[in-house]
Every structure is written in C-alpha cells, then in structure tokens.
Design a protein around this nucleic acid. Structure first.
Lengths: 235, 235
DNA sequence: GTGGATTTGTGCGTATGTATG
DNA sequence: CCATACATACGCACAAATCCA
C-alpha cells in the first residue's frame, strides 16, 4: 500500500526548525531591537502549536547564535547579534585539529594583519589626535598596567575603529579572543616582551601620516607572532 | 546584609551548559574527526548524569555551531566545523536592522574587497596557468551558463584559494552567501550586467602579473556594488 | 525580608517517525 | 515485511531564579 500522503510541508519535517524560523520571523516582522522581550515559552507553545520541548530546543538553537538571549526566571529577549558563535566555533576548531591546529592560528593572524595593513590608508587618515592619545594610553597600560592583555585587545580594536566598519571591528575582537584562548593550549605565549615597542612604532608611523612606515610597523608587529607559530609547528 | 556566599561554581549553574562543555571535552580528548559518531542520547544521559531534556538542548546548541551534527533516526556525529553559524547570524542581522541594514551589506562588501585587493601580491604570484584557465571557464559560465550566480561564487572562491588560507576562503564563501541572501530583500540586484567584463579584467591583470592593474580591476569590480548600496541607502 | 506570582530549568514517561538490516 | 536502534515530539510535574507587592 503506497499510502499516498499529501505532504505539503515536506521541506520542514523537523518541527523545531519550523519553530525556530517562525520565531525569527516574529522578530523581523515586528522590527524588534536587541533586548526587546519575546513571548514566554508557554505563549510561544500556544501561538505556534508546538510542545514546550520543541519550543525550548528551537530557542536554544537561536540562543547559540545570539539571536535570542534567555535569562533564567526572567524571560527571553532578542539577542545582541554578536559574533559569539564565530568565536566559539573557531576556538573549538583550533583546539580540535592537532595536526594543523597551527594552520588555524596562522590563518587567523594573517587576517588580523590584513585588516590593519590592508586598511593602512583609511586608518592613518581617520586617526585624529584624540585617537592617537588613547592609543598612547593603551600602550602605557600594556607596559605598566595590571592587565596588559586587555590593553592589547583594546589597542587593536581602537586601531580599526575609525574605519567605521562595524564588521571589521567585531571580527578583530573575535579573532583576538580566539587567538588568546587557543594559543596557550599550544605552548604559545600570549604576551611578547617587545610588544610595547612594536605598538609604539605603529602609533609613531600613524602620527607621522606615513603610510609605508605604518604598514611596515604593522608587519613588524605580527612578524614575531607568525614566527613563533611557525617554530611551534616545526616541533 | 552582603550575604557572603562561598560560591565556587558560580559560572556553571546551568546543567545544560555543563553538558555542552563535557561533550566538547569528549570530542577533544578523543581526538574525534568531523563525521565521527558520538554516543547516543541515552548513553550521554547515563554518562553525564543528566536528563534527556538537558542533553538534547545541549546537543541543539552544539548543532547550531556545527560542532555536532544530528541525523534523525541515525545518530549524532561530530560536525563539519563550518562557518554556517556566522552565515545565519550575519544574515539575520542584515535582515533585521532596517535603519542601517545597508551598513551591514556595505561593511560586508568592504571586507570581501579587502580580501582580494589587500592580498593582491599573494594572489597574483600564486595563480598558475591552471588556475587562470579555471577562472576563464567560470566567467564563461557566468556569461552563458544556466547558473551565473554559482559561477560568480566559485570565481571569488577560486581567486583567494591559492593563498592557502582556509579561513579567508571560508569567510569569502560565507560573506558571499550572506550578501546574496540579504540583498534581494533590499531591492538590490544580485547580478550585474557588466559583471562578466569586470571579472575578465581581473583575470587579465593577474595573467599579466600586474599588481596595480589587479588591484584596480578588483576595485572596479566592487565599485558598482558599493554604488548601488549607497544609492539604495539614500532612498 | 517575606511570600507569592511569573518564568525558565530539569526530569521522566510515552508515543511516533526514521533509518538499517 | 518485520525487528531493532535511534532521534523526534508531547505532556506533565517539580525545582530554581527573578521580580514585586
């Protein structure tokens, strides 16, 4: 018996996928902003005609992508739409691949360098006196502060910030987070002794409006990092 | 009353998160490769001492990040560790922000262009005759083939492929996917009439080993796209 | 600060759909 | 066609967190 079932919704055989799509639709159709409250789980169950298990699993999927944010005992809200999923995914990939895990870090550093060196013209022209002073302060914190790593992260974030490209800024932060998480697991140091001087050279070149010097200083900043990765890969 | 609670495990109050971490640990400790089978849900419940609900929700979180992959009626496996989460997250962000949704696409195109223009030297030197011939064939498919969009995607993927940077290749694909998904929702065309000629110019410059011409050709390729975005933003 | 209401988190039993042999 | 193994879905009960009167 062929049992001719008129399946009009074959493409969506998994209910929780359907629920997930409809929650996204709800956010889009209502133009909700990050932080805006979503219906409760029970309300979603009633509205979407699904059990609480399906609704909850769908919400967990969206939560992993930072499309929604769940606060225990409080409610569910539109998420921050950050790149946290990229960070977690790349970090895991870096920790997993034992054979070419250095390739992951190497690729990562190359992109970070490209963001700064390839945008040299835009960065140098957009950096004003205030930015440069802030960069100086961050290098000081790198040198004598109690959290040099945080200062390093802020330095590179501030460096690309004047570009006005939100995606570049967020990717810069994301890649920095992945690197500092994965590197220690491979015997790579997250702090370099000559880091302070190399960062000062970048500021000096930017202050002098010298594009070539800026590109050179950025390359010099990443050179020891790439070198250590290559050295570690050999061992 | 300050209520001095000696909380030694504040960071891990949610069982679901704990389960998720332990599943990732299991994969890392056993050096499992993508596609390798994971224990069944019941086995995970027994091993981790958690209920099925918690285990399933944890798995859905990892599934969203492509760290695990679930096949209905078959089992759970290590995922492909792709950037699918980035694609879904950025796509949703692009569809959501009605005010600066053009900013999202604009940022995206800027990064795509940076990948190709900023790596001009590496691309031109790494492209051999075989690559160039493949690029020619892809432009032909763009011109007369039945799926010009797929040829366009493959063109840019092949362009950055000889760099040997897996991350750049995957980000190129990811950003292309996001753009072609979001653009139609904003009245932006995904195909340009002069696309074919602009792509041929890129190949010509690469074949001539002319870095400046290559950079210029890449810029000319993205110029109309950026123009359309700017024009659409004004309206 | 106490209690109660709301909301998410966890556990468990059962039935169903799916893939394999 | 049947049997087995597995994921999917549902419903309910209770625990934990948060908020507010």
């Amino acid at each position: 018996m062929p049992e001719v079932v008129s399946n009009e919704r074959v493409g969506r055989s998994l209910l929780r996928e359907e629920v997930s799509e409809r929650i996204k639709r709800y956010i889009l159709d209502n133009r909700l902003r990050p932080g805006a409250p979503l219906p409760t789980e029970n309300e979603l169950c009633a509205a979407l005609g699904a059990s609480r298990s399906s609704v909850r699993e769908a919400i967990k999927t969206l939560d992993a992508l930072d499309i929604v944010e769940v606060r225990h005992g409080h409610g569910t809200y539109v998420g921050g739409l950050s790149l946290s999923a990229l960070v977690e995914g790349l970090t895991f990939r870096g920790l997993l691949s034992p054979d070419d895990e250095f390739g992951v870090l190497s690729d990562l550093v190359e992109v970070r360098e490209l963001f700064e060196r390839g945008n040299a013209a835009g960065i140098v022209t957009a950096l004003d006196a205030e930015h440069l002073a802030s960069l100086d302060a961050l290098v000081d914190r790198m040198d004598t502060g109690d959290d040099p790593l945080a200062a390093d992260r802020a330095f590179h974030a501030l460096l690309v910030h004047p570009l006005g490209n939100e995606l570049v800024s967020q990717l810069t932060d994301a890649f920095w987070d992945v690197y500092t998480t994965v590197a220690p697991h491979l015997g790579l140091p997250t702090d370099e002794h000559d880091t302070v001087a190399l960062h000062r050279d970048i500021i000096t070149a930017a202050r002098a409006n010298d594009l070539d010097s800026f590109a050179t200083a950025v390359a010099a900043h990443y050179a020891p990092i790439r070198l250590r990765i290559t050295a570690a890969r050999a061992a």
